[in-house]
Simulated assay, not measured.
Amino acid sequence: MGEKRSGRPTMNDVAAAAGVALKTVSRVVNSEPGVNPATAERVRAAIDRLGYRRNDSARTLRRGRTASIGLVIEDVADPFYAELSRAVEDVALRHDHFLFTGSSGEDPARERDLVLAFCARQVDGLIIVPAATDHGYLAPEFDAGIKAVFADRPPGAGCRADSVLSDNAGGSRTGVAHLIAHGHRRIGFLADSPAIFTAVERLRGYREALAAAGLPYDESLVAMGHPDQERVCAVVERLLALPDPPTALFTGNGRTTVAALRVLDAIAARRPPNHGRVRHGPGRLAGLALVGFDDFELADLLGVTIVAQDPSRLGLTAAEMLFRRLSGHAGPVLRLELPIRLIERGSGETAP
């Protein structure tokens, strides 16, 4: 009964060292009442002397919980998702839970594999930034008691669960309307793949801003796809070569914005020094105004106007929603939409 396992002292060892019953040690370890203060102090001294550590995994398993949650995001290397993940982890730690994180890479099959792997490890709950458009595969997990919250994008078909999103369409409307207010009538729109919910919502906001200003929607000014440098370079070169090129760009996420800035800088560097335009910042390179969706590192120093969502608040809200469900809340399914704000820094405030 009193032997050590793998060199680690057990609760039986503590009881023997303190000269008390096993139940007394259990009460002290779990901060339960009913133990004489002097006895409790003797038990704590034995714990310190032996280096005993409570086996939380066994304790939580007996209660049907594992004190862990899983987070599935697009890419752990993306600064936006890194910030979201950190906020989730902070909330998890406050609730004495561990966080397991994995990247789906926008692959629905990979998302499903990660989710089911976390479920197989008996996490108490999940926060998912979905890549899939069908989440019917979660039904057995929900029946088994798993709780889930979807962040950044809503759940797909076959799934009813809480979600927290940013106002993607409203943010895009605000950014494009800002360019229109400064005299721009030909505005290029560069965004992520049309298979991604947020990209489609931002396109909707772009179109709504044009319609509100009485401007036509021109498909030749729109390009959607993966935000890699080579593709963005080709898109910007194509837009500038149009018979009636845009005077401004609205970029649909931080990575697209950074790629576009690199292209515009390269294009401006090829022009003669006395081309007739003064370079005041990256947004005015190559004669274009620019507003980007999402803030990014050094955007303030570069003077890039952006519409900013708050990834920390997104992660914080999603995690708090999840732990509310884990605590027993059984209210109706919630869908929260967080506001987005325009931050003017000069790149979108230049007239055509």
Rank of each mutant, 00 (worst) to 15 (best):
S6Y: 11
P9A: 08
V14P: 03
A21R: 04
K23R: 14
R27Y: 12
V28R: 09
N30M: 05
N30P: 01
S31K: 15
R44T: 03
R53F: 06
S57M: 14
L61Y: 09
R63E: 11
E74G: 10
Y81R: 07
A82V: 12
A87V: 12
R94A: 15
E106A: 06
R112H: 06
L116T: 14
F118I: 06
R121A: 10
G125R: 00
I127V: 05
T133D: 14
T133H: 15
D134R: 11
G145W: 00
K147F: 00
P155E: 09
P155V: 01
S163D: 01
D167C: 04
I180W: 14
A181E: 15
R185C: 07
I187Q: 00
F189V: 07
A199H: 08
R204V: 09
A211D: 05
Y217Q: 04
D218W: 02
V222Q: 11
V222I: 15
G225D: 13
Q229W: 10
C233V: 12
E237G: 13
P243A: 01
N253Y: 01
L264G: 02
R279M: 14
G283R: 03
G292M: 03
D294M: 04
L298V: 13
L301T: 11
V304Y: 02
I306L: 12
A308K: 11
D310G: 05
R313K: 14
L316F: 15
L338D: 10
L342D: 10
I343E: 12
S347Q: 04
